[in-house]
């Protein structure tokens, strides 16, 4: 287990290196940030001054090694636009995105697993057919459109929830989050629901398919032959088995939601990391882009680690050490 974790972390350091190089040179190829930062009227001398101040006058590989040197010391550079450390900018935005993603996962898992299991248990019931029809909508309706509709219905027509923005934060055990204030939760609900819909549809499908498949297996019949109540068969014997594919898919989803819930954050004017990266790409704010993607790599690595550990908890046949 320890060996496994260490090996994983070593691999991820390699990935971080590769990632930093690709992004660094990639952004260099895309365009010159100086062009965007200085005003149109600026003369050649002004441009040179800005370039020199940002260190952009040097050859790109010199810039990269300077970056690496600083990065090893924990400094990922300052934002061209805001002039503050990129990492600080990202960390400021992180809680907003985290709380959004967490609530959307709670909605997706908390509703998706029971609904999907029901749909798989009674596949021919009217309830199951309604659930499955709903999940098709969840898959096929575009996120931005659903977001706008949610705003229309709950904020504009019924006026029971705010249309956007992050509400006031409460504090709990030293953590600041809208999760700890009622108004904050109100602001969180619609964007989280919007972000949850696709995952909800996914979890419903996975839970239903897993349920239907597992119910036919010998060990379910055998569990019933032991005289177990159906409740126990479903919630112990079946549930533990169908959690394996669900954890896999949600693990993958979790990372991309944290990194790229851009659409929802934009529609609901949610001050999260997704908005930050879009703005930074727009401004070719290279230090922020690079730092952002490095942070995302770290998050993905951590999530994968947790998922693998969860696997070995869920399925005793999975041995952590055996996998590379």
């Amino acid at each position: 287990m320890t060996v496994f974790v260490i090996r994983r972390l070593m691999q991820s350091i390699l990935v971080l290196f590769a990632m930093s190089a690709i992004v660094f040179f990639g952004v260099y190829v895309v365009g010159d940030p100086v062009e965007i930062l200085v005003s149109h009227e600026a003369d050649e001398a002004e441009r040179a001054r800005v370039a020199a101040a940002l260190g952009l006058d040097r050859p790109v590989w010199v810039q990269y090694f300077a970056f690496l040197e600083n990065a090893l010391g924990g400094d990922l550079g300052k934002s061209f636009v805001f002039g503050i450390p990129a990492i600080q900018l990202i960390l400021q935005r992180m809680p907003a995105t985290f709380e959004l993603v967490i609530v959307s996962f709670v909605i997706a898992v908390g509703l998706g697993i029971p609904l999907g299991m029901y749909a798989g248990y009674r596949p021919n019931s009217a309830g199951a057919k309604t659930i499955m029809a709903g999940s098709i909508l969840g898959f096929s309706l575009p996120t931005f459109w659903v977001g706008l509709m949610l705003i229309m219905i709950f904020a504009v027509e019924m006026q029971i929830l705010p249309a956007g923005g992050r509400g006031p934060v409460g504090s709990f055990l030293g953590m600041q989050s809208s999760l700890f204030s009622w108004t904050g939760l109100g602001h969180l609900f619609l964007p989280a629901l919007n972000l949850a819909l696709f995952k909800l549809a996914l979890v419903i499908r996975l839970a239903r398919a897993g349920m239907r498949e597992t119910l036919l297996l010998d060990y379910v019949k055998y569990a019933r032959a032991k005289g177990l109540a159906m409740r126990r068969v479903v919630f112990v014997h079946v549930l533990k088995n169908i959690m394996i594919p669900i954890v896999t898919v949600l693990g993958l989803e979790l990372g991309s939601q944290i990194a790229f819930s851009v659409v929802t954050e934009t529609v609901f004017a949610w001050p999260g990391m997704g908005k930050l990266i879009i703005e930074s790409i727009d401004k070719l704010d290279r230090p922020v882009i690079v730092a952002y993607l490095l942070v995302i790599v770290v998050i993905f690595v951590l999530i994968n680690l947790v998922v693998d550990v969860l696997y070995s908890v869920l399925d005793p046949r999975v041995r952590l050490a055996a996998k590379a």
Partner: peptide, 16 residues
């Protein structure tokens, strides 16, 4: 009580 054909299939793989 019952005993099934293939014990590899009848015991739940994820439960002790």
């Amino acid at each position: 009580a019952t005993i099934f054909q293939d014990p590899a299939m009848t015991l739940n793989p994820v439960l002790r």
